[in-house]
Amino acid sequence: MTSEDRLLAALSAPAAPAKDMHFALEVMRRAEAERFRADAARRVLRGAGLAVLGAGALILASSWAAENADALLNGALALAVGWTGIGVLRRRIGAPR
């Protein structure tokens, strides 16, 4: 047997089994773990984004309220007066609440 025959025979021998369910299952397990990690990271990012948006909106609202305290007070007062007026009117005409 020549060296060339020996080389070709050795190289053509399979280096991995033709069937190995354990390997396929391990790939599936890793793929699932990766999918779970990606989903969790997405959820955390979405939560953080919403929190940042909420905090931003709160800061904007409070700074607007601080700058327009009078208008806000007037508005709240007008709302309270209107609400009370509607309540009184309903009671007078006997409408159900």
């Binding site: 399979p14 991995a16 396929a24 599936m28 793929a31």
Partner: peptide
Amino acid sequence: DGRALALLVAAHQQAVRGFLRR
């Protein structure tokens, strides 16, 4: 579809593992 992935892995694992083992 996880089953499809498993079938693809089963069909090609020998060549990929064989190459990387060598």
